[in-house]
């Protein structure tokens, strides 16, 4: 019974205001697209780099505060803890290697070489 009610309600809704509510239709798809677009353009690198730093400092101060003047809350704060003691190395390992045997992957860097296509002005 309840299912029926729901269905009719939804049906009537689309019937009445089909034009006005069109924008709502594939909201989740649009959101997903927007999210992917953002991901691809690596949104705000500046915020990622410098924004997090301000947060870090605050966290540090909080952790230093003592409870009741005697005990200190010891919590492994945030993910920065686990990397605090990791290996100090400047190398940037490749996380998801491409399959360089595939033709289309090889083509993705074709123009980085002098043998590739040149821009018009050169």
């Amino acid at each position: 019974l309840r299912e029926d009610g729901d269905l009719t309600e939804a049906g009537s809704c689309t019937l009445e205001t089909s034009g006005a509510l069109r924008w709502k239709e594939d909201l989740s798809r649009k959101a997903a697209e927007a999210f992917l677009r953002q991901q691809q353009t690596t949104p705000n690198l500046r915020k990622l780099i410098y924004g997090a730093v301000a947060e870090d400092d605050e966290k540090e101060d909080d952790a230093a505060e003592e409870l009741g003047g005697l005990f200190r809350v010891s919590r492994p704060s945030r993910e920065c803890r686990h990397k605090a003691d990791s290996v100090d190395c400047s190398r940037f390992p490749v996380e998801t290697p491409h399959d360089w045997d595939l033709e289309e992957v090889m083509d993705s860097i074709r123009d980085c070489f002098v043998t590739g296509k040149w821009e018009d002005d050169k």
Binding site: E60, R81, K83, A84, D85, S86, V87, D88
Partner: peptide
């Protein structure tokens, strides 16, 4: 002031 051995 910093904490941890990383980025020493």
């Amino acid at each position: 002031s910093y904490a941890g051995s990383n980025f020493l």
